[in-house]
Structures are given as C-alpha cells and as structure tokens.
Design a protein around this nucleic acid. Structure first.
Lengths: 205, 205, 205, 205
DNA sequence: ACACACGGGACCTCCCGTTTGT
DNA sequence: ACAAACGGGAGGTCCCGTGTGT
C-alpha cells in the first residue's frame, strides 16, 4: 500500500526528530540533520511538515503517546492494591530510564527548557504534555490516598507535579553524569518519600 | 579609572550571557544578542572571549560563584542545630527562586540539557558545577545525620544529588508552568521527605 | 531545460572560482567574490559546494580537464616523429600562455603555493594534478628517447617534472613581470635544453 | 642597551613574518599569528609596522638580504674560472634548499604568487627583488660567456631570468611533493643545460 | 616602547523555507 | 509524493587597525 510507504517517511522523520531533539535540543537540531538521519530529502520534509516547529509538535505528540503506551502496558488495573500501583509506576519509570542507557532524557522536557520563555504558544503545549502525565499519575495517587488514609495529608495532583519535576531533574542530571546507578538511587528516595506519606517504613522492599 | 571601564564591558557581557542563556539556552542565544544586550560591539566580544563556548564557561563560573555567595550569606554556621541548617538551605532556595519571578531557572542546568550529549568537555564542566553545589549540601546533610541519627539510613551525598535533581526539575517545570505557587509546594514536599528521614512528622512548622 | 540552467550556475561558480583563485590565490578569494563574479547568491553556492575547499577541488579538476583537452587537441599522434611531438608540446604551452595575456598562471600551482604546508589533504590533490600533466609529458619524452637515443641519458619522468617546475616558475615570474616576451624567451631555453639532450644544435628552427 | 632590546622585538616580528608567510602566504598569515609566533603583543607590532603590508615589505627586504649574504659568502671572486662560479652558484642553491627540509620555499615568490595581480605597488617590489637576484646571476653568467665563447649564443640576463623562474618553480613543486631528491634532480638538469650552452658534455662531474 | 581595550566589518558556514519540476 | 535547485539572511569567528594609557 502506498499510504504505508508515505507514512513511513513521515514516521522516520518524526523518529529522527525525537532522537535528535532529545539529545541536542530544539535549536541545535537542524532540519537538514533530521532529514539526513531519516534518510529523507528536504523536499519530503516540507511536504509533511510546514516548519521545524510543526515537526517538533508532532514529535512531542509521538513522545507522549509512547509514554502513554508504556503506562498502559503497565496494567495498573490488574493490581488490587492501589499502593502497589504507585510502586509499579516507579518500577516502570526506573526500568525505562535504565534501558535508555546513554541517551536518557525526556524530549518534551529538553525542548521545554530552551523554548518555554521564547515561544508562549509552545509553552502551553509543553505544559499540556506534562499535564497529561501528571493526570495519569494523579489518578493513581488519589486511589492510593483513598484506600490508605495517609499519615500526612497531601494533594495528589501536587504530588504528581512534584514527581514530574523530580523525573525531569533526574533525567537532566543523568544526561550530564552518565551514571545509571544515580537514577536508581534517585528513584529509591522518591519511593521512600511516597511510602513515608503513607506511614510505611522507608526500607520497605 | 580605565580598568574599571574595561572589566565593566567584560562583566556586562557575562551578565548578558547568563541572563540570555538562562532564558533561551545555549544554541538559541546568539553572540549578537549577547552583544546587543550588553551594549557592546562584536569586536569587543572577541577581545574578551575566544568563542561562544568560552563565554559560556565564564558565565557558568559566575553563576556558580553567585550561588556560592548566596549559600555563604546564609550563615549556616550561626545555627547550632544542624537540622536547622538543612531547613535554612531549603528556605534560601525557596526565597531565591520565588524572587526570580518569570526568569526562574538554573543557567548550568539549562545549558547542560542541550549540550551534555554534544560536547564531552562541557559535560565534565557541568558535572563539576553540580558537584560543587552537591558537596556543599552534602556537608550540611552529613552534619545533620551525625547529630540526629536518622530513622532511615541514607547516604548524604546521594541525598544531595537527589536534591539537586529535584531543584533542576522544579526549575524546568517552573519555566513552563509559570506558577510560583508550584515551586513552594514542591519544596514543601522535599522538606517533608528530609524530615521523614529523621523521623519528624511531615507537618512540622 | 532546467537541468541546463542548474548546471549553468554550478559551472559559473566553478569558472569564477578558477578565474579568481588563479589571480588571487585561495585565501584572498572570498566566497562572496566568487558568488558576485558568478552572479549567484551565497545560498546557492552552499547548495552546490559544502565549503570553499570543495569548490576549490572542483575548480582544480576543471582546470586539469581543461589542460587535458588542450593537450588532446594538440593531436600528437598525427606527428610521425616523436621529437616533433616534444616540440609541439612546447608550442602548445607557449601559445596558451601568450594568449592568457595579463591573467597568466596555473590555478593549481597558485593554490598549491599557499596551501601545501597548511593542508596535507589538499597537498596530495595538488601533487596528483601535477602528476597527471607529468605523466602525459613523460610519455612523449619516453617516445622521443626511444626513437632518438639521446646524447646524454635522462629519465623521462624526471625531465617531465623538471619541465613542470619550469612551467610553474615561469608563470609565477610572469605574473609579476607582466612581460609576454619573457615567457617566449624562457620557453626557448627549455626547447634548447631538450634539443641538447638529443644532440641537436640549440638554434634549430 | 635598550636600542638592542627594541630591535630584538622588531627582528623577531620580521623573522616570524618570514617564516609564516613563507609557509602560508600573505593572506593566510594574520598579524595575530605573527605576534603570537614572535611572542610580541599587537601593540608592539603596530608600533614598528604601520600595517601588515609594511611588515611584509620589511620581511622581503630581510629575505633578499639573507640571500645576498648567502651569495656573498660563496666567495665567487676566489674562483679563477668564471664557469666554476656558475657551478658554485648552483651548488649554493642546492645546498640551501636541501637544508630547508620541509620548509622549502621563497618568501618573495610565495607572496608574489598571491599579490602580484591584486596590488600593483607590491608587484613592482617583487620584481625588484627578483631583479636583484637576477642581476647578481647575470654578472656571473656574463663573465663566463666572456671567458668561454658559448657554443650557442645567449643573453646572460635572459638566462638569469630563466634560472630564477626555474628556482621559483622548483620550490613551488617541492612544497607539494615534499621530496628532497626532486630538487637535486632538477638542479642537475639546469646544470646540464648551462654546460651545454658552453659546449660541455652534460655528464661533466 | 609597549600593552591592551576596543571597533567595525568581512569571512565562511549553513540554516530554514520556497519554488520549480516530475 | 517527492526531489532538488535556489534564496536570503544570520550565526560564529576573527581579522586589521585605532585609540588610550603607562
């Protein structure tokens, strides 16, 4: 089918945009680089995307969808205990980031760092992507809170944003430190904090 | 005196570089912009800095020195209780970031996000700047741990890195969300976690 | 046809590069000058050539091809006597250089003078261009040697390199002296030397 | 003495200019490079020389003086036979160029190649430097011609220009070929030609 | 005699996007 | 759908030369 062939090119462009912008950010990724990486000519690029900004938006959508899939495949609903879901979330993040190896990072966060103050329109998009992840997380945390009255009260959404911040910061530092052990240690602390909110000892397995 | 005039220009260039790179990152900040912002010609720029990379390094040094001063002026040593020092650290961070208003961010973190995977030499510099902050924080945490045997054991350096990650992530998200309350809430959670390590209730005033 | 239009631009750029680098060398020829001379925008320049070095390489190829054509149109094969071919070679050179008028010179030699010690990669290319001319000349000299046992033995390749040196030096001095008679006199001496190798009197018509 | 210290700096600048322009030509040698190579600040440079062109002129004077000294120290006058003086001239050239090793070249010729068609004033200076060498050589050749009526008549000045051309060309090609043996072979051919003019067999030792 | 801040501009590179053609 | 020629302009580099002061 031709349609498949076509979207192949578009898909390759998006994949390349994700890979390159994840590594080098928005400004330092050129359309030419994306085309070269995707093995596609510039003519095709501008057929599919009106501008670099447009492919960036598409790439972020793809990136978010990818993470939505990861969370979906975590099958939280098969866990009866809501608190287990919280831990599985952290498990999933940990596994995913460790797998990234040297190319660890969040594409949305990387671009947001550069462009938030330069482009108000993009800024809103970044926030909406963050919000999507936060909403997902908020649900899980709210369920846990409902099931296990916390030792200390907390706002699930606020805690979710806190977790997102922590994720972004961990990825940022991980990019520089290039030490996988660091990610694991960081997540361990987060897990400990969440447990502490529910009155659990921090060394819970 | 001429010497003052001279260093004025260099200083202005560095200040502009910090302000602009903090906002827009490394690639999206042009030498022309820095010069225009500093009110200096490009010819003068090249007299002081051999390249954009060089002024970036100088700007990061300045930035780190600025934060070293902020920590120095926190006068931790006048607090007898080591745990109070931990909280004053968080107080200082909170105040500083709230003051930033819309221009919140960490210059080193912003540049590190883009350049860590593109320039190995710079990467080491980023890490060294992070490390400087982490070392300072580690000392404070280690003192607190020595004075108050924690309910849960922790490695002070590891926790300091965790805090640095949290700071970077918070600033990144804050750039996009542009909601000062978010920073306060985030720090509150961090404070709660540190307290929990020492067995204190999270709602400690 | 568009293809013709397209290669026109590339061709014009190469022609301008040859003309300008022949006159002013590599460093003193700017891409802007080449573009202006060719009536082409700099954007187009970069479409065809990745760098000034690349157009220089293309220009040298063109230059060598041009001289290969000149030698080919000399129709040496229609001369039965190999020694006549040697003289026709000198005739051809003489005519060509006299025709140049004030713009006399060898583009490869001119660039080689500046860049041989600065760029090892280019150096090899210069040598290969010289070698091509030398190979052609060597064949002619070897044929003559085979037909007319020389009074003094000589290595045809060595003599060809000697001739090439002489050509380059003559063009260099001619650039400064701006005296066409000088070229003719110089070639006369060369002719006399070659003849002397074959035991002919130097004043042979 | 202070005056000595001063001229030290000027001398170092000239020496560096010679070395650098010999290698890379005029345009590709920057004033900054000359200063760095000489270990002198740019302030000093412009104290001694009004422009890059001026130091180039001074450097060429120095270069010519250097060669005048080499010829002077050849002590041609102690040779009774004028033809021996011709051969000593070639001996001296050969030794000098072989000694240069990888940095072989003529500073005047190198700069002349780039600048002859760009700067008419400089062009005249180049010619005058060439002329000085040619005059010296012409005298030697004229003496030989007077002593040994040549088998073939020749104009000493014309032959001297021919020799200068040959020298420049040899140095140019030598820069690219980087093969010392080539210089020796080239000079051997020249020697053979001169001998042939006087009716000597080419294989004269 | 010398040092150095400083200026203005030119250089090469190359980027993003349009136009043209198939 | 795709390819490629093409344009305008900006980005980083850095060069030559001037000025001021010591």
């Amino acid at each position: 089918m031709q349609a498949t062939v076509i979207s192949d090119k578009k898909q390759k462009l998006i994949d390349s945009a994700i890979r390159l912008m994840l590594r080098h950010g928005y400004s330092d990724t050129s359309v030419d680089q994306i085309c070269a990486d995707a093995g596609v000519t510039k003519g095709s690029f501008f057929h599919y995307f009106a501008s670099k900004e447009q492919i960036c938006l598409a790439a972020m959508d793809e990136w978010s969808a990818h993470w939505r899939d990861i969370l979906a495949s975590a099958k939280f609903e098969e866990l009866a205990d809501p608190l287990d879901r919280v831990h599985r979330l952290l498990d999933v993040m940990e596994q995913a980031y460790i797998q990234c190896g040297t190319d660890v990072g969040c594409m949305v966060g990387t671009v947001a760092q550069e462009m938030s103050l330069a482009n108000a329109e993009l800024r809103k998009v970044f926030v909406s992507h963050f919000q999507a992840w936060v909403d997902e997380t908020t649900k899980i945390l709210a369920d846990a809170k409902a099931a296990y009255p916390p030792r200390t009260d907390f706002d699930p959404a606020e805690l979710a944003w806190w977790l997102q911040s922590f994720v972004q910061g961990t990825l940022l530092i991980a990019k520089s430190r290039q030490d996988p052990g660091f990610i694991r240690a960081n997540i361990r602390h987060c897990r400990a904090y969440v447990d502490s909110l529910f009155g659990l000892p921090a060394d819970r397995p």
